[in-house]
Amino acid sequence: MSEEEKKVVAQEATNNPTAGEVSVNSLAYTTGQEVVKAEKKEKRHMGLKAKRILGNTVVYIVLVIMSIIWLAPFVCIVLQSFRCESTWMTGYIIPHKWGFDNYVRLFKNTKFPRWFLNTTIISIATAALQLIIILCMSYTLSRLRFKGRKALMNAMLVLGLFPGILGMIILYRILADLNLTQQNAIPGLILVYTASSGMGYYVSKGFFDTLPKSLDEAARVDGANRAQVLFKVILPLSKPIVIYTLLTSFMGPWGDFVFARYVSFGTSDGMNVAVGLQNMLGSAGSINANYTTFCAGGVVVAIPITILFMCLQKYYVEGVTGGAVKG
């Protein structure tokens, strides 16, 4: 190396004394940072994943516990209905002796088949009639505009605030005057269930409100009258709400034990299942004699209704959510 060359190197070295180091350092630094970043990212990713798994596990645990709570009573009632050793209310769940005694007793010793038939007739008739009335009411209030429409809706709202139970006394007397009580309770109950069902038009109206108005207008332009619009345009589109209305009005009579008890007072032929089964648990003595029979009856009633409901659940959910969205 010549003197001159040495000088240049030395000069360079003095000019930027840490240049080489720095560049190396900075390189190391950046790559190090990138690695840390990537690690962090991975960690966070892992964290997120772990978090999500943890969250999902918590949710699963809660859901499983909830399912147990929700199912427990129904499992209990089924188990108790197969218990043979006693008809009493007992403090344990699993029967000591299994068998169909309670079901046999239910069908032989009580008038359960008659009650079941009564309720089926009532609920089928109620479903059909309520469907007509509710559709008439909700369609009119939703899609036709006429004088007094708002006033009518407000009046319904106010009427709905009166407790319905109080009308029982007078409705019972009207039915008694028409000779529709006791033995003839079935037509009487159908009449009462359907007559004022127009008040429950809200969900159905909410559905009709969502159908576009242009449908009506197009049909009107084509020369259809309003009845034709209803039967040829709107009804074919209303399958969900028709099924929803049928389902809810079919299920209603199965649970009515207040008014039905009034109307069928003093006779067991005119009872529906709710009244008949509830009577079994009416008094302490009755509970001891009939507790497991009640369980059997409950199972027999619940199974067909539950199956029906589960098959049509989709429509029910649509109705409930639609109703909520419309208020």
Binding site: M66, G255, A274, V301
Partner: peptide, 15 residues
């Protein structure tokens, strides 16, 4: 969960 809606209340609540 929906089971409690499907089964008539007089059965589930009474039980």
């Amino acid at each position: 969960l929906v089971l409690t809606i499907a089964i008539p209340q007089f059965i589930s609540l009474l039980y």
